[in-house]
Design a protein around this nucleic acid. Structure first.
Lengths: 216, 216
DNA sequence: GCCAGCATACAAACTAGTCGGTATGTTAGC
DNA sequence: GCTAACATACCGACTAGTTTGTATGCTGGC
């Protein structure tokens, strides 16, 4: 503390770019929450990872809770939307589309070990904070509704069995995806997730109308 | 400190009962971990709930981590064993037995909101602590093996379809149970869990050999 | 000059864990 | 049977560190 004169700022990053700073905070928070959970996520870790300090954080977000809400709305929700909602907005064969989405679930070791970010946070925070819970419930609802929608459409086009209830099937699909994700996360083993995906795919195939089976 | 003579101990509880003290600590820890997760579980809260102080805790357990391990081995493991392993050790009809176990899943609001204790802890701690992970992986393995075992037995007795792979079906069952549990926990709604249970039961019925269907 | 956009310093509360002390229980020697 | 010596079980204050959040200070661009 003797040399009080070294006032040289590193200035490695862009001098002033509030939007970028905010985005860096969001991404850093998302990573740290993914690793440690929300409650145990340390603001200091987030700040170090984002390369800013407390002042920047509390300029852009009024509390840790608000930062968490923003991560849900601006990071997690768009991610789920891009993987499980948008792909089904216009589709030829719903079963093919669902199988494709299931097959696109990441199965790299790091992904399997970390689990599903939405499910992680939902498990941790749903009983503890209504703000978290509601925001994530909206994401789950949109997910389920998108899957049910494409199944209903498939039923009218005779590419999906008509003796199944789209809403129930959609819920089952999500439950199996998250359930297998949980098992694989505990096992810390991509093979568990891959086996789960195969089971889900087989089950999805069984939803085609009889006589309309494509492959084995 | 002036009146050094009042040496009357309240003695409301049993004067000295180390086993009981240990058990109270375990139960209190289990409750607090169930509510807040392991990382955010406060030792002070556990101690207040158990009615003892730090000395007692660190006499019986050498660290918070050790306390967590003990909760898994002495609280969670026996619970899962009693619900998902013992019931299948000798059974007439595996499908009936599995349906019974699924139907016995607690669906009271408090249970649904809190979620499955094993799954909660597995989700939180598996990527963070190998000791936790291994202990819980053993529980999941025993669960899956018990279900697969009873399915295999059913196959030899012609009460279970022979074109299914017991290990896969067992994993699917667990994935669905935990997956629906997750959805219901986020929704904070027993109806979600009840609907999931109905779906699981229907799926279990489809595992009977053709022509051996019992009820509708 | 002014103020948005941060950095810095600090506060208050909480964390796991340690440590000296103490009361109770058990055993050994006589 | 009495007591010294020791072991067990537990208390509660204390430490060192971490937590979120606040209050203030600085700085560059318009």
């Amino acid at each position: 503390m003797l040399e009080a004169h070294k006032r040289r700022k590193p200035r490695a990053t862009t001098p002033r770019d509030p939007e970028r700073t905010r985005e860096r905070l969001l991404q850093a928070a998302s990573r740290e929450i993914y690793r440690s959970g929300f409650q145990s996520a340390s603001l200091d870790t987030i700040l170090a990872s984002a390369g800013v300090t407390k002042g920047a954080l509390y300029y852009h977000f009024k509390s840790k809770e608000a930062l968490g809400y923003a991560v849900i709305e601006e990071v997690i929700a768009p991610d789920v939307h891009g993987k499980w909602v948008r792909p089904f907005q216009s589709v030829k064969d719903p079963i093919d589309a669902l199988i494709g989405a299931v097959r696109r679930i990441p199965v790299r070791p790091a992904d399997v070990r970390g689990g599903c970010q939405l499910n992680n946070l939902a498990q941790e925070m749903s009983p503890l904070d209504a703000g978290f819970r509601r925001r994530m419930a909206r994401i789950f609802d949109a997910w389920r509704e998108a899957v049910a929608f494409t199944l209903r459409e498939g039923q009218t086009r005779r590419s999906v069995r008509r003796d199944i209830e789209p809403a129930d099937v959609a819920a089952s699909l999500i439950a199996m995806v998250e359930g297998y994700g949980s098992l694989a996360k505990n096992a810390q083993d991509p093979k568990v997730m891959k086996a789960g995906i195969r089971n889900i795919v087989d089950w999805l195939r069984s939803l085609r109308p009889p006589g309309n089976r494509k492959r084995a």
